[in-house]
């Protein structure tokens, strides 16, 4: 049976890992490669690196960083942020990324998903969706949840799958940064709607939150940032707790 995955997420700005709440008040937390190596050693199953650089210089620093990450770590990793074309994806594949994630660029041009998937396979394409609940409807957002689109979460996730996405990474912008638990009910709905794995993101504050989203929420993987960066929940202890809750995990 495929193990449920624990995925630390690292936001990278101009080559260094930063963390802030809702993109405000960014704080530098460490070196991207060193942190990745340490997480891999601790038992992380996969890593996600998101480039949040706003400049061209920042972007090219990131591509160089991806090469260093690929040389340093021995578990799969996904990179995202600013991927707007098949060429951008190809560059990151050549740098050694196992998967790429697309978000706002896929919303702007959904054919990007199919074009990357046809060329490099569905296993390479993660579609990330940031959504907010507005009067009972989950609306896809861009720019860190500040801009609303005309897309609704469930239909967009379904379309992304049909276009060749290999996984859906859904972040509830209502839960992100709160540390009050994941949007479990929404993940369970996504799981019944989709045949591809769903990665849960946004809201992790305790071991129980992660247990809940992997059982009740039926997510294939739980992604989190701050609880891991500040070692609030050490991964080895988390993995043991998940095993005790009868969740299949890699130990």
């Amino acid at each position: 049976m495929v193990a449920k995955r624990i995925i630390p997420c690292l936001d990278v700005k101009d080559g260094v890992v930063v963390k802030g709440i809702n993109f405000e008040g960014l704080r530098e937390v460490g070196d991207a490669v060193e942190m990745g190596v340490q997480y891999a050693r601790d038992g992380a199953d996969e890593l996600v690196y998101l480039d949040i650089s706003a400049t061209r210089e920042g972007r090219s620093t990131f591509a160089e960083l991806v090469k260093r990450i690929a040389r340093g770590i021995d578990i799969p990793f996904t990179v995202g942020g600013g991927i707007g074309s098949v060429e951008d994806a190809a560059r990151l594949l050549e740098a050694g990324a196992d998967k790429i994630s697309v978000n706002s660029s896929a919303l702007a041009d959904p054919s990007l998903i199919s074009r990357i998937a046809e060329k490099y396979g569905s296993q390479f394409v993660v579609v990330a969706i940031d959504a907010k609940c507005v009067e009972g409807r989950w609306i896809c957002t861009t720019h860190g949840g500040t801009r609303f689109t005309d897309r609704e979460l469930f239909s967009w996730a379904r379309e992304a799958q049909e276009r060749g996405a290999g996984e859906i990474l859904f972040t509830s912008m209502d839960h992100d940064g709160t540390r009050a638990g994941y949007a479990c009910g929404v993940y369970a709905q996504l799981d019944s709607l989709l045949s591809i794995p769903v990665i849960a993101s946004g809201g992790a504050g305790s071991v129980q939150d992660i247990v809940d989203v992997l059982t009740e929420g039926r997510a294939s993987a739980a992604l989190a940032a701050s609880i891991f960066h500040y070692n609030q929940i050490p991964i080895p202890a988390l993995k043991r707790a998940l095993q005790q809750a009868n969740i299949p995990v890699r130990l």
């Binding site: 193990a3 995955r5 296993q123 045949s195 794995p197 294939s220 890699r250």
Partner: peptide, 9 residues
Amino acid sequence: KVPHMGWNS
């Protein structure tokens, strides 16, 4: 699910 992707024993 297919592809079989992830960690398995």
